[in-house]
């Protein structure tokens, strides 16, 4: 008997197993690539910008000298824009999702609304900027103001909020509805007392995530003419504004290396804000969402 010899079949099996192991390695490297890039990006931005990051950076206005430059106007502008975007996009988004999930008949028009929302989500933000520029800035004569910026931003993140809210509403089990109906509740009573309370954590999580996208959004606000040099505190929604990402962009597009370091410092602040928002969303999702 020849114990040591390998049959052709076994050889083939070995080959297949080796192939599988190699492929696993390649796929794993692919996954690792994203993580390495993320690490490189964070380290790079951090080491580049940390030297300019101090209290003065947060409290100063933008300046021609890199060491005096700050993001006060940008931070305030972001807060102003968000104070318009949050209510407008939430009211529109949640109402739309309630209509689609609770009231809408299964007809062509409903499908059209849904398809339209899906397509809106894919429209480049710079096109939303053109819309804002034409409709809000010029047609409705809001000027290059916080109001115009806030409305543009609301429309931009509307599709994302609708998708998140729809998912949150859909997660509520039918039994909850049945129980409420059995008690004699009407449709609106059910929405008010069953659906909305149960869906709130999910809606909030989705809303915070989409708003964090809005905080980092640049192109559309650039289009409606968010000024890059603002040395005053906005006092009303009709004032001009700049936001953090635009301030970063204007520094990054200067040729001097110092300003690019300042841009990196601004990026650190922006990333910290986004991390805080995302953590908040995760906390809400983990602690307040009900499991049925």
């Amino acid at each position: 008997m020849k114990n040591n010899s390998v049959t052709p079949d076994e050889k083939q099996i070995d080959r297949r197993i080796i192939k599988n192991k190699l492929a696993k390695g390649v796929f794993f490297l692919g996954t690792l690539f994203g993580i390495i890039v993320l690490a490189a990006l964070l380290i790079r931005i951090f080491t580049q910008g940390i030297a300019y990051l101090d209290f003065g950076f947060l409290s100063n206005f933008a300046s021609r000298r890199p060491e005096d430059a700050g993001i006060r106007a940008a931070i305030l502008g972001t807060i102003w824009i968000m104070s318009i975007t949050i209510p407008v996009s939430l009211i529109l988004g949640v109402s739309t999702s309630i209509y689609l999930e609770e009231y809408a008949p299964r007809n062509k028009f409903t499908r059209f609304i849904e398809l339209n929302l899906a397509n809106l989500a894919g429209v480049p933000s710079v096109v939303f900027g053109l819309l804002g520029l034409t409709v809000f800035v010029r047609l409705l004569e809001m000027g290059r103001s916080i109001l115009a910026g806030g409305f543009t931003m609301s429309l931009l993140i509307l599709p994302v909020i609708v998708v998140a809210s729809k998912e949150a509403i859909r997660a509520i089990p039918q039994e909850q509805y049945d129980a409420a109906y059995a008690m004699g509740a009407t449709k609106w009573q059910i929405i008010r007392t069953v659906v909305l309370p149960a869906a709130t954590p999910g809606i909030l999580t989705g809303a915070i995530l989409s708003l964090s996208r809005g905080v980092g959004e640049t192109a559309s606000l650039l289009m409606i003419g968010a000024m890059t040099f603002i040395a005053y505190t906005p006092a009303s929604v009709l004032d001009g504004f700049t936001v953090l990402p635009i301030q970063i962009f204007s520094w990054a597009s200067r040729p001097q290396a110092e300003f690019q370091a300042v841009a990196a410092a601004g990026s650190i602040v922006l990333l910290v804000i986004l991390i805080v928002m995302n953590t908040l969303a995760i906390i809400i999702r983990n602690n307040y969402s009900k499991r049925y």
Partner: peptide
């Protein structure tokens, strides 16, 4: 792994731009 990739998706494009230009 999945949440790390999600972070990558959340990085603002302007920060990516700075990364492209300076790194």
């Amino acid at each position: 792994l999945k949440p790390i990739l999600e972070v990558l998706a959340g990085v603002p494009t302007v920060v990516y731009g700075l990364f492209a230009l300076t790194f």
